[in-house]
């Protein structure tokens, strides 16, 4: 359906913006390494089923892209542009996010199996793993516009999944309560950022239109 496609595209775009930002500026300043490492954890733990279940070519390709690109970004940040990488402000206590997500996955899962627990863990972790990035943004104050576009596209992706879940509930009678709960939490975390983004970026664009 349309919402799902738009959500996936938005997710894809967010990563392309991020890669383009890093390559063009040859710097990773303003980008939270912690958030990026958490994304590697999110994608690897969620897409373990790549090895066991086949859904579609689209599905497999997207999963491989998300895993590969997240690992690539972390490599860029730690190795390639390491010399310019100085982020003493990226100090969000990540252990609470990982610990909290793990507890949530033990409390809420569909089956008590290794892969199902990891899958649930990845949902909760994804919901909160933007926090170090938002924290960094707040600490440094002024962010490059491009970084905010990245966060916006990333937030939009899960927000678009919400109407997709409504749609699937009515058309397929499908309800994945875990995805929905974690997705709502994720969108809530972004909501404050969305508001600021709307105020600053979109209004400025409108103002600058010829």
């Amino acid at each position: 359906n349309l919402f799902r496609i738009a959500g996936d595209i938005s997710h894809l775009v967010s990563i392309l913006i991020l890669l383009q930002t890093i390559e063009k500026g040859k710097t990773t300043s303003g980008i939270s390494l912690k958030t990026q490492i958490l994304y590697v954890v999110v994608f690897v733990t969620r897409y373990l089923d790549l090895l066991t279940t086949y859904v579609s070519l689209y599905n497999s390709l997207m999963k491989i892209f998300f895993i590969a690109s997240s690992v690539y970004v972390v490599w860029l940040m730690t190795s390639k542009y390491n010399k310019k990488f100085k982020e003493d402000q990226d100090v969000f206590p990540v252990k609470y996010l990982v610990g909290g997500s793990f507890v949530m996955s033990l409390l809420f899962h569909y089956k008590f199996t290794f892969s199902e627990i990891l899958w649930s863990f990845s949902l909760w972790l994804e919901a909160v793993c933007i926090l170090p990035q938002l924290f960094l943004l707040q600490k440094t104050g002024e962010a490059k516009a491009i970084t905010t576009h990245y966060i916006f596209a990333l937030g939009l992706y899960r927000a678009l999944y919400i109407p997709n879940w409504f749609y699937r509930y009515y058309s397929e009678n499908r309800l994945d309560l875990l995805s929905v709960s974690a997705g709502l939490l994720q969108t809530t975390i972004y909501s404050d950022f969305f508001y600021v983004y709307y105020q600053k970026v979109l209004k400025n664009w409108g103002f600058n239109l010829p």
């Binding site: 799902r4 996936d8 997710h11 089923d49 279940t53 859904v55 579609s56 599905n59 997207m62 999963k63 998300f66 569909y110 899958w119 999944y161 509930y169 397929e172 009678n173 499908r174 309800l175 994945d176 995805s179």
Partner: peptide
């Protein structure tokens, strides 16, 4: 609702 979920989302 369907309890046998197919994990086809990303």
């Amino acid at each position: 609702p369907n309890s046998k979920l197919k994990k086809d989302e990303l």
